[in-house]
Design a protein around this nucleic acid. Sequence first.
DNA 1: CCTACAACCTGTAGCCACTACAGCTTCAAG
DNA 2: CTTGAAGCTGTAGTGGCTACAGGTTGTAGG
Lengths: 148, 148
Amino acid sequence: MRPAKTLERVVPIGTLAERTGVKVETIRYYEQVGLLPEPERSEGNQRRYGRAHVERLAFIKHARDLGFAVESIRTLLRLSDTPGMACDEAHAIAAEHLDEVRDKIARLRSLEAELARIATVCSGGVAASDCAVIEALADHSHCEHHGH
Amino acid sequence: MRPAKTLERVVPIGTLAERTGVKVETIRYYEQVGLLPEPERSEGNQRRYGRAHVERLAFIKHARDLGFAVESIRTLLRLSDTPGMACDEAHAIAAEHLDEVRDKIARLRSLEAELARIATVCSGGVAASDCAVIEALADHSHCEHHGH
DNA sequence: CCTACAACCTGTAGCCACTACAGCTTCAAG
DNA sequence: CTTGAAGCTGTAGTGGCTACAGGTTGTAGG
């Protein structure tokens, strides 16, 4: 009896995909754009991943889930690969991204307010040519700047 | 003396762009994908827009600013073009979009919380190989589901 | 009337971060 | 040894623009 799949140390791409929650195609894409290093290959040219790959891909997924751009992740990975490197740069990337996220939240909130207004006006089911939803979209009087 | 530009009734694409805040290339793109009807042309084949175009494009811009997908806008425009059409469908589109926006806000907020945690840990300027930002990204213990 | 130059035209390619497919080869269970 | 899932490469498509290249038109000043 072989060890169970979850204990195997060298796995094919499908297993890596399962373990990290990243799709097979996306893994190959990450390799292509240089986020994930090229793995060893089997005799038949199939990718074989080890522990280090699982960890690195998990890092990437986590950062992507947090909305970091691939370019930022590349930098973060470079930083994490460089022992003794100053943390300042990594911190700056995270802080900048946090700013962007807060900005986005603010914009979505003002947007939510206007949408809520639009969506409620004609919820009574008025079947008419002057639908309030349409009018609200045509009418810019309530439309403050949502910013960029 | 001709009327001032802001009073002209038939304008070239650049003026339409200025008035609506939509870039020239984007206007042509909207025409290409069928959001904006093909306008009249000058003798020399240049687009000439009238009042109706300005209004329609303003509608499109407003909806885009609110985050409606082009496909949804297409439907909304069709509805607004159809006199006596039931408002229900327009309402459904707006309500669905509102749901999506609220979802997005919720996800961004949990994301903000994690990012804030990440960004503060090493703000003291610890220059070390075990940068807290990097570690926080490598470490999934704090990482609740951010949802899709 | 002529010239200069901004604004316009079409068509194509690029952007991001994937996703999907076509057409093939390899792996592993039965 | 057969079968079928899983792997491979390479290319094209997605959305919503944006950015050229290389040409034509409109118009204000001289």
